[in-house]
Design a protein around this nucleic acid. Sequence first.
DNA 1: CTGAAAGCGCTTACAG
DNA 2: CTGAAAGCGCTTACAG
Lengths: 332, 332
Amino acid sequence: MTLKDIAKEAGVSTATVSNVINGNHHKVSKETIDKIQKIISENDYTPSATARSLIKKESKIIGVVVPNLSEHDPFSSSPYNTQILSWLENYIRNQGYYMMIRTVGRCQDILQAFLTWNIDGLILLGAFKEEAEEIRERVKIPTVYLDTYAEGIANVGIDDYMGGYLAAKYLLNKGHRDIAFAGPVTTEGVIATRFKGFCDALNEKGLEFNNNRYVEAMTFFEDGVKAGKKLAFLKDKCTACVCMSDILAFGIMEGLRLSGLRVPEDISVVGFDNLPECKYSNPQLTTVSQNIKKKACLAGDLLFEMINSKKPVICNHQVTVEIEERFSVKQL
Amino acid sequence: MTLKDIAKEAGVSTATVSNVINGNHHKVSKETIDKIQKIISENDYTPSATARSLIKKESKIIGVVVPNLSEHDPFSSSPYNTQILSWLENYIRNQGYYMMIRTVGRCQDILQAFLTWNIDGLILLGAFKEEAEEIRERVKIPTVYLDTYAEGIANVGIDDYMGGYLAAKYLLNKGHRDIAFAGPVTTEGVIATRFKGFCDALNEKGLEFNNNRYVEAMTFFEDGVKAGKKLAFLKDKCTACVCMSDILAFGIMEGLRLSGLRVPEDISVVGFDNLPECKYSNPQLTTVSQNIKKKACLAGDLLFEMINSKKPVICNHQVTVEIEERFSVKQL
DNA sequence: CTGAAAGCGCTTACAG
DNA sequence: CTGAAAGCGCTTACAG
């Protein structure tokens, strides 16, 4: 059933049917409206989004790109991304839009194919700086980045510096002095910024971070297990470790346990993200809490502001973070 | 840049450009192909998916519907759904298709709007029987259901009966006799079937399930906490509890703990699903493991079989389940 | 091997 | 208030 069929059945032109469907009721007489609406509901008719999108050059689709370390991993290997995704879906749906998801190794790989859908907006989770710069040049539709450090874009992130700072500060206040740092090694971006805050907190106390205590690890559970074992046998013994994600912290706790160490009795652990899982873990994880829902909502606000105003926005929201205290840190 | 522009620049017709783009190389001379491909790559041209979809009546989009208890919840409130979703995304992407996600209260609500996209296939997670029956009548495109008990559809589920049976059997073998069952109350479908298997295992041992031990709870953490407190003070004391999801089990363990009971020393807990979280929990959760990746892959296989063969398939795959033993059950 | 023409299902000036 | 016509960006017989 097409709009044309309805027009025929109602004995009017397609233009009139179109006006009824699109709520241009001031252009159509009451009787015509009623007649057409009756036919529409009787036939369960819905306009073709493709045809409409073709002519209106908009689609009501928001594309969301989830970068993955490997294209073979599912996005759930990063529960943080999953959380963000689900709040974005919620936001996008409430705006009456559709969400198209794509996991990808490098952001650029998918862009062209994605844009072919006339998508009205684009959200990118955790793109790297160089990716963002390339995308900024090539993509002309409203785009919002999450957790990306780059100039000239609309970004929603957190106060990563403060995250690292607070984690260290918290441990220092609990009497810890020999603190490890676990996460990927980077020179800029999210992790590097957190690391800087972390070091500065130590420095304030007159301490210097000992680089042997940088435990390199991807933010996955299995990497965490390995990292935990490394941590257990570190030459420069530690009493605590700050981890760059909760999942990594879970893995590290497991690795420590397998090495015969107890958390927090023998070594304290602080996570990052405050995922729901922190409440189930053993012990429940003290972590740097970022407000994931708020980030998703801010990203949505930004995106739809750009869509509705048809103007690009350049900004960098930094959502505040705080320590969520649970039971994985011991007072020394 | 459109196909027409390319045709003009190359001095050929749009039909010829179309043939080049679509790989109908036997219809076009070598020189023409080269000339056109040069122009295409120089201009970074990608065909409009909307226009193509309109005329071909296919879209390379797979719609995935995630039913939620509340439309205001994000889909991550069900980590099981999240896992399925992410493996589906993986599968769909590897087929060169796009995934459109929609969370919804009642499946029917979204269907019409969803179908307007000429989507090539539909996957529904956890639809109810009546929903499935309505959808079966109204939807003419390839559709695959997950965990739905209904006739005449293509379904991928698990052996729920065996899941319930094995959980009870496992506890019986560990010496437990007074066993509770925690989950939503239903008369048919996934949970009811598991419950039947659960009861039958008890019966085999000459035991009858005591209905006072049916702890009603939704499969969320917070509901679990409440259920755990109820369980702690049940008149008909139990030594173990089978929970209808891991998340529920985590909540129940927390509720028990808050009530002063230890798991597994005072009471044993068995979960259902075997989510990654089971490895982080306190204690690590013994659970009925379902192969989530396999389910997603089977669903993908089925869907694309239907899409490629253009024939509907009616079947009911039941993936096998097994007990994943960890540390939440005590030998009596 | 190539092109003119029709058409997918809509919307949008424009004329009446 | 209503309709004829053009057009969105493609593909597909069909004729040459």
